[in-house]
Design a protein around this nucleic acid. Structure first.
Lengths: 227, 227
DNA sequence: TTCAAACCTTTCACAAACTGTAAGTGTTAT
DNA sequence: ATAACACTTACAGTTTGTGAAAGGTTTGAA
């Protein structure tokens, strides 16, 4: 399991690394706090250990930015013991908030719990309000679950995992029929129609938009495309 | 949302009730601590707020007993600020551990988080290591998910939700074919064979045992029946 | 306005999966 | 041994997902 540590104090950081490595975690530290969010996400960690008091940048901002892009568990470990900081962090998507100094065991059991909880979600790809099991193409939203047929599920998987971007028809054809003999792009259109119909019966806020000559994208209803 | 409060100190209890009711929660208090576990579960609460220091009985025992029977979120709120108590409670299945005195907001946000997290699991019925979505009959175990055909899913639902007890053939026939015209009990046997085959391909620790003349039960492999 | 390219929708027939029936085989308790 | 109960397998009917085909609609440039 890979943990990214974001902490400016060298002494504290080394101690954390030592504690975590003793528990067999793979530990990486981020020290360029200006690009912290990017660097953290690039590592694809299983958990983020985040200090709030960083030079120049706000830990809150990092927390918020990570949560917008990922569902990785965030454990905030900080010297600030103000209640309002704690509430703020939790509201921004932190999963756990601990004050320094913190007993080793207390930290470790929280980490264990967060990781276990995250494992329960490892089947899924999630975007706000939507959740898709990519093994079975079971789809969860609004306390309702349905099963997508394989093709619709594969399309949805692409659209969700590239949320915010365009997904080209070429990419989709490749994903659905791989190296198979040539299949008419009409087949994709048929499946797209079917998927749209399935989605429209679900009470959700997203729709599939066509980008003429390009492909498709998943969008929040009401949202405008911007590239 | 229904919250059960387990707290012996009258003053504290009333304050908790007041805080929670102000947030529109439905609050129930358990005051007979000897039967606490039974009473709590009977209420089918959405969350349990548990003190550890109770007269006669151990809060730890209650925590453990609840967790064995249910996945309801347990928030331990206690005056004991010993690290080992905290670790113990969390290991017994508590989801959150807060020390008294505790700010109102701190408590409320933790409750909110626990409830939100629990809602994610509301599709499912769970027993140790197994999880079944009863809407789609998608089944999760060992980081693998598969979809049960409807009949197999319904049988599994009964077996899991009555884990530890026998499920009669009559009950199963009723569940699968309801008030329909008479259907041969052989149909159930066929589906049972199919379910057993499905399960055996899944690397799990459970098997379906026949209780001759009675019905079926789900058992841990290696476990002996005892009634 | 016109027109062609791009995209969408509906229908059809084939294939795969799920189902109950039936018939035959095991198993258990007396 | 035997009768009641439980299990298994094969089979055919039904349902569901699929791509092909054909025709309709939208888009955007001339």
């Amino acid at each position: 399991m890979k943990i990214v540590v974001v902490e400016d104090d060298v002494y504290m950081r080394e101690e954390l690394v030592s504690i975590l490595e003793k528990e067999q975690y793979e530990v990486l530290c981020v020290t360029d706090f200006n690009q912290a969010t990017r660097d953290i996400l690039k590592q694809q960690p299983d958990l983020v250990l985040l200090d709030l008091n960083l030079p120049n940048v706000s830990g809150f901002e990092i927390c918020k930015a990570i949560r917008q892009k990922s569902t990785v568990p965030i454990l905030v470990l900080t010297g600030r013991d103000q209640l309002k900081d704690e509430l703020h962090a939790l509201n921004l998507g932190a999963d756990e908030y601990l004050n320094k100094p913190c007993h080793k065991e207390r930290l470790l059991i929280r980490i264990t719990n967060l990781l276990r909880r995250a494992e329960d979600r490892s089947h899924f790809i999630e975007i706000q309000g939507l959740r898709l099991d990519v093994q079975t193409y079971t789809f969860y939203s609004n306390n309702v679950s349905i099963i997508f047929p394989e093709n619709q599920g594969k399309i949805m998987e692409q659209l969700m995992s590239h949320y915010g971007e365009n997904v080209t028809s070429k990419m989709l054809v490749e994903t659905l029929w791989g190296g198979l003999d040539y299949i008419d792009e009409n087949a994709l259109q048929v499946n797209m129609t079917r998927l749209r119909k399935t989605i429209s019966q679900l009470d959700i806020n997203y729709k599939i938009t066509t980008i003429r000559g390009e492909g498709y994208r998943l969008e929040l209803i009401g949202e405008m495309k911007d590239d």
